[in-house]
Design a binder for these strands. Structure first.
Length: 928
RNA sequence: GGGCGAUUAGCUCAGCGGAAGAGCACUGCCCUUACAAGGCAGGGGUCGCAGGUUCGAGCCCUGCAUCGCCCACCA
């Protein structure tokens, strides 16, 4: 296509799919295992549920940016794609589908249900990966992993066995967070807390023993938010030092509604300041009460079942839900006048992070991973800065989370996931746990070395080390050979924790593991810093003796215009695919980068994309401009000769500005401040290159008498530089422009394949030129001022005028004379007179600028009363500034304390402003 | 209860010790041969409040207020 036929408007749709396919087809993002330094990222694997949302778009844009940037810096880049099976979340999706058919997973049975799960994952599990291709992500698709594929599953089972042998995995009856909807245990971090409006019930518990002194007939009052659990109370507790209740320690209390006597015990955990200072103790249904119960050997009276309904033992309350039971209990208590009062109360309630239903603390048999040693070495790595978090503010919470870590509940009672490789002997004892750990397939492990517990009754857990997914060959106790596998599966985050090593092939000693571990940087949002990042650090350090990544780049969460998290239920989502369709993928990517301010969440609204789309168009058109002008020429150009060219001021200036831009871009990228990077690029390209340099270049390009070669070379250098700088952020449009440059033989052969094979720009100090920048600044402000007058006085651009510049010093005079064309061209001025004793023509507008005066004879063109107003306004501004400067200079301490250069600067400013004011005053007086 | 962050132009946000900035929105002029998704120019801010440090404070310190997030055994 001839360059002149390049469309005037950049059309993303017509180029994006071509490039997305091209990068894959040409294997551009597959590493070659050569001598270069590796740069590796493993993707935070999206769950196989649903499709790409803005959070994914942000996360992956940032990773892609880093990969492309590093690739252009000659690193051997690898970005590993993959998906997560997503445990509960994914199972919920399929269960919902079943529910539509009025079926539950139990109707299907485990096997059939899992078949359905796999079917679903096959059908829609890769949706997001396909969408990431559209986003332009330079992932190596030949290495795509899934947390439940063969490689990753092997890692999971192997890791489980290793921990088991070490004695760090144990099973025990504990109080865990139970989701009554998902029918599974949750780890502590999978519980989210929501502030809820609730009631605090003050309930009277009659005292049975020792009716004397002040307690005669006065019942104890306990405050609780969960009256229904009183059916399972086995004590009442106060703080041992609370003077109000000192006399009655050990007395017996009548538990209302239940024909039962319970003791009044004392425990440090009670806060005397809360409520009445008296607490009902329900060891089976509250974590603190559970602990109190342990300390005081209280019985655990289970009154709520795993389904969230009241147990048989509760008599008339049986089968009621927790909520219904609460109402009933309160009604009953009220009837018996046992409610002292009910207060409104705000407190946070734990809910399931997957379904939002209130979590029930319940006692059940669960598997745990002991984490103290793991946390310890991870903390050490942090202290030694082996893992650095960007921005640093996240380091503190990360460290304190590790410091306060409790054992990790790794078992889930769902079906979708890695089934725990532990076996029960069918012959000798049903509660007999077997885990196969040795080559002969059998190893006895009688450990539950945590808190002196044992696993089941005389249990001998066995695992199969060589084939963990298979049962042991025989039972060492009874020699039986028939086993049943544990039905629990592992927490989905267990496999996620192994992700950086499992995707590279661990526990095999694969070439990839050897070459690409540890990875370079992990890019993620802060919501999974603990859930995921900390655990990967633990696993990587333990199994590979090295941190899995040296940098953690934490980006913000995408929110809507009101600052709310985007969610389908709120209906405030901005769909990245729609945005890509409407504004182009590069525009989407640019906005995400532009808003990626370190340490801050970003608020997006749809109009932010318009500016980015316009920016794309600007880039497109300025490239078009350069190409159109080069098209007719035929020159060969080696960038090395750049410093040898004889350059005009504008060219010296833009090259100097470009070097500084390159430096600033590099600095911002190194600190993961991509908002900064975006701003720098936007500013340079639009406000400096396009607005000034390109406009000035027309002086030469549009003048048939001028030699255009040097200017075209500079334009070309800049366009190439800009395309390269932008590429990591905006890969599509830059590739397209690059291709056109290639078609005109304007780039080196080995760079033609893709922009990523060119070198990322490096600053060339030789080309920095502060003098040129100062001179251009001078000319640019003169030009702007002249344009301002024209605009304010409504002199149309078509009206050519002349100007007089009076009073420049000799340097300024030379500069102005040499570049009078700049002014003429950009201010639409026909003629410029420069001199030291020029008279102001009658009926002139005037501006006083940097020690000189500029006259614009505008007789007949403007209304001079307007000019007077304009001057008056200017005059007032100057007066204000002088007041300000005087105030500063008259501060006696200013001259003694401020640094010399600051004093000089202030004095100069004062002098200049004074001069301006005097001249302005003169002219003001002359206007009738 | 503890920690973190925010509070700057109508909106979204930069700036973090020496003359208040950008984009969007708004106003005026311009279809100037890269771009009207554009150009040129303009209006609009006692930089949350109160103290303090400093010659000098959106910027540093201390309180306070409001909003948001994270953590915690808030019965």
């Amino acid at each position: 296509m001839p360059i002149t036929e390049i469309p005037k408007v950049y059309d993303p749709k017509s180029v994006e799919s071509y490039w997305a396919d091209y990068w894959i087809k040409e294997r551009i993002f597959q590493p070659q295992l050569n001598q270069k330094i590796p740069f590796v990222i493993v993707i935070p694997p999206p769950n196989v549920t649903g499709s790409l949302h803005m959070g994914h778009a942000l996360n992956n844009t940032l990773q892609d940016l880093l990969i492309r940037w590093k690739k252009m810096n000659q690193f051997e880049c690898l970005w590993v794609p993959g998906t997560d099976h997503g445990g509960i979340a994914t199972q919920n999706v399929v269960e919902k589908m079943l529910k539509a058919e009025k079926k539950s997973r139990y109707d299907l049975g485990r096997e059939k249900f899992l078949a359905k799960m796999w079917e679903w994952r096959k059908e829609s599990g890769d949706t997001i990966l396909m969408q990431l291709r559209k986003l332009g992500c330079g992932l190596d698709w030949t290495r795509t992993r899934f947390t439940m594929d063969e490689t990753c599953s092997k890692s999971v089972l192997f890791a489980f066995n290793e921990f088991f042998k070490k004695g760090w995995i144990y099973r025990g009856k504990r109080m865990v967070n139970w989701c009554v909807r998902c029918q599974t245990a949750l780890s502590d971090i999978e519980v989210e807390y929501e502030e809820r409006k609730d009631k605090l019930y003050y309930i009277r518990y009659p005292i049975l023993s020792g009716k004397k002194e002040g307690w005669q007939g006065v019942p104890l009052v306990v405050a609780t938010t969960r009256p229904e659990t009183m059916l399972g109370d086995t004590a009442v507790a106060v703080h041992p030092d609370d003077p109000r209740y000192e006399k009655i320690h050990g007395w017996w209390i009548q538990l209302p509604l239940v024909e039962k006597e319970i003791p009044l015990i004392t425990d440090q955990a009670i806060d005397p300041k809360f409520g009445t200072g008296v607490v009902k103790v329900t060891p089976a249904h509250d974590p603190i009460d559970f602990e109190i119960g342990e300390r005081h050997h209280l019985t655990q009276e289970v009154v709520i079942g795993f389904d969230g309904k009241m147990k048989e033992s509760t008599g008339k309350y049986a089968t009621l839900s927790r909520e219904e039971c609460r109402k009933e209990v309160v009604k009953e208590l009220e009837a018996q006048s046992l409610i002292e009062k009910i207060e409104d109360y705000r407190h946070s309630v734990g809910v399931c992070y997957r379904c939002g239903v209130i979590v029930e603390p319940l006692i059940s048999d669960q598997w745990f991973l002991k984490v103290d040693k793991l946390a310890e070495q991870t903390l050490k790595a942090s202290k030694e800065e082996k893992i650095k978090i960007f921005p640093e503010t996240w380091n503190k919470p990360y460290v304190s989370w590790l410091e306060n870590l409790k054992d990790w509940c790794i078992s889930r009672q769902i079906w979708w996931g890695h089934r725990i490789p532990v076996w029960y002997c069918n012959k000798c004892d049903e509660s007999h746990l077997l885990i196969n750990t040795t080559s002969d397939g059998v190893k006895n492990i009688l450990t539950d070395n945590i808190a002196g517990r044992t696993i089941g009754e005389g249990a001998s857990p066995l695992i199969n080390e060589t084939n963990p997914e298979k049962p042991p060959s025989h039972c060492p106790k009874c020699n039986g050979a028939s086993f049943t596998q544990e039905t629990d599966v592992l927490d989905t985050w267990f496999s996620s924790a192994l992700w950086p090593i499992s995707v590279l092939g661990w526990p095999e000693e694969s070439p990839d593991l050897e070459r690409f571990y540890p990875t370079s940087v992990l890019v993620t949002g802060h919501e999974i810093l603990y859930l995921w990042v900390a655990r990967m650090a633990m696993m990587g350090l333990y199994f590979k003796k090295e941190v899995p990544f040296s940098h953690v780049f934490i980006h913000g969460i995408v929110r809507d215009k009101q600052g709310k998290k985007m969610s389908k239920s709120l209906g405030n989502v901005i769909d990245p695919l729609t945005i890509m369709q409407k504004y182009g993928t590069d525009a989407l990517r640019f906005v995400l980068c532009l808003n990626s301010v370190p340490g801050r969440d970003m608020q997006l609204s749809e109009d932010s994309f318009i500016a980015a789309r316009n920016f794309c168009n600007k880039i497109w058109n300025v490239s078009r401009f350069v190409l159109m002008n080069i098209e007719t020429t035929n020159f060969k150009f080696n960038e090395a000769e750049l410093p040898l060219l004889e350059l005009d001021l504008a060219s010296q200036w833009i090259l100097s500005r470009f070097q500084k831009t390159v430096l600033a871009v590099e600095k911002s990228l190194l600190s993961y401040d991509l908002a900064q990077t975006s701003r720098i690029l936007y500013q340079f390209i639009w406000s400096e290159f396009c607005d000034w340099y390109v406009e000035l270049s027309k002086l030469i390009l549009l003048d048939p008498t001028k030699n255009k070669e040097t200017t075209l070379k500079i334009l070309l250098v800049l366009i190439k530089g800009i395309v390269k700088l932008l590429h990591p952020m905006m890969p599509f449009i830059t590739e397209e422009i690059w291709k056109k440059l290639g078609e005109m033989n304007l780039i080196l052969k080995d760079e033609t394949k893709s922009v990523v094979f060119s070198l990322y720009p490096k600053a060339n100090i030789q080309l920095e030129n502060d003098l040129a920048e100062t001179n251009m600044d001078f000319l640019m402000s003169a030009i702007t001022k002249i344009r301002t007058i024209r605009a304010e006085m409504n002199v149309p651009p078509a009206t050519k005028i002349e100007i007089l510049i009076n009073g420049p010093d000799s340097d300024e005079k030379k500069l102005l004379e040499k570049h009078s064309l700049y002014i003429q061209h950009l201010c639409k001025v026909e003629k410029i007179l420069i001199g030291n004793k020029l008279e102001k023509p009658q009926k002139s507008a005037i501006l006083v600028f940097s020690g000189l005066e500029i006259f614009l004879p505008l007789e007949g063109l403007i209304d001079f009363s307007k000019e007077k107003q304009r001057l008056l306004k200017e005059f007032n501004l100057l007066q204000k500034e002088i007041e300000h400067l005087d105030a500063r200079l008259s501060q006696p301490d200013f001259k003694t304390h401020a640094p010399e250069e600051e004093i000089v600067r202030t004095l100069e400013r004062k002098k200049e402003t004074d001069q301006k004011l005097i001249k302005l005053k003169e002219h003001l007086e002359l206007i009738q």
